[in-house]
Simulated scan of single mutants.
Amino acid sequence: MSYPVQRSDAEWRQNLTDEEYAVLRQAGTERPGTGELLDEERAGLYSCRACGNELFVSGTKFDSGCGWPSFYESVRPDAVELLEDRSLGMARTEVRCASCGSHLGHVFPDGFGTPTGDRYCMNSVALSFEPGTQE
């Protein structure tokens, strides 16, 4: 897929830390329980760390107990791209930024008790947080 935000590999490497690059551009995963946004409870907006695309509002964040920030829906349906992921010998749904194609995490249908039943399990390092009044 062609994304609105296009950068060369060298530009991504220049603009991202090694850890951000490993997650966002190489579909890596940060260790559970280590992300700086895991326990963030303020109202605000979560965006793609690579390109700034708005992804999630704080009102959709919930404590899933999985070790990564979890949300039950994206800020709008076209904010993220969902792709089948059959790596690691299992079927999952990968979540990518629809603006730049960066890997954000995975979505699972086990967000029990949420309005959508979904759990967008995101890497903190893939997100930027802007405190504000978004709910």
Rank of each mutant, 00 (worst) to 15 (best):
Q6Y: 06
R31T: 11
G117Y: 09
E135V: 15
R25H: 03
D63T: 11
D9F: 06
M122R: 07
R119G: 10
E84Y: 05
D85N: 09
G44A: 06
R76C: 10
L38F: 10
R7C: 08
S70C: 10
S47I: 07
T60Y: 09
E130L: 15
L82S: 12
V57A: 15
G44F: 08
K61V: 06
M122E: 06
E73Q: 15
V57K: 15
E36N: 01
C51M: 03
L16P: 07
E30W: 00
H106I: 06
C51L: 03
G132K: 06
T34V: 01
P69D: 00
L82F: 13
G28V: 01
E84D: 13
H106M: 06
P109R: 10
C100P: 07
N123T: 01
R49L: 02
N123Y: 00
G52A: 01
R42D: 12
V75N: 11
E41H: 14
G33H: 02
S47Y: 05
T93W: 06
V57P: 10
C100Y: 02
V80H: 07
E81C: 11
E40W: 00
T114I: 03
C97D: 01
E40F: 00
E41C: 12
E54V: 11
G111L: 04
G33M: 00
M122G: 09
V125S: 05
S2V: 14
D39L: 11
S74F: 08
R7H: 13
T116I: 05
R13G: 01
S102M: 04
E94T: 02
E54F: 06
V5C: 06
L88N: 13
R86E: 12
V75R: 12
S99H: 09
L45R: 13
F62W: 09
N123E: 02
K61P: 07
C100G: 05
E81I: 12
L55D: 09
S102H: 02
D63A: 15
F129A: 05
L83W: 13
C66D: 03
Q26K: 15
E41G: 14
Q6G: 08
S64Y: 01
L45T: 13
R76S: 14
S74P: 14
Y3P: 08
L83Q: 14
L16I: 07
D39S: 12
G132T: 07
V75G: 10
D110F: 08
F71T: 03
G132H: 07
V125L: 03
E19F: 05
V95Y: 03
E20A: 14
P115C: 04
P109E: 11
F62N: 03
F112N: 13
A91C: 11
F108T: 08
P32T: 02
V75C: 12
Q14I: 10
A43T: 14
G67T: 08
C100V: 04
A50I: 04
E41W: 11
Q26C: 12
D110Q: 08
A27C: 10
L88F: 14
V75E: 12
T114A: 01
G117D: 07
S99Y: 02
S102V: 02
H106T: 04
A50F: 01
Y46T: 03
L38P: 09
Y3H: 13
V23N: 00
Q14Y: 11
W12L: 05
H106Q: 06
L38E: 11
S70M: 06
D118T: 09
T29G: 00
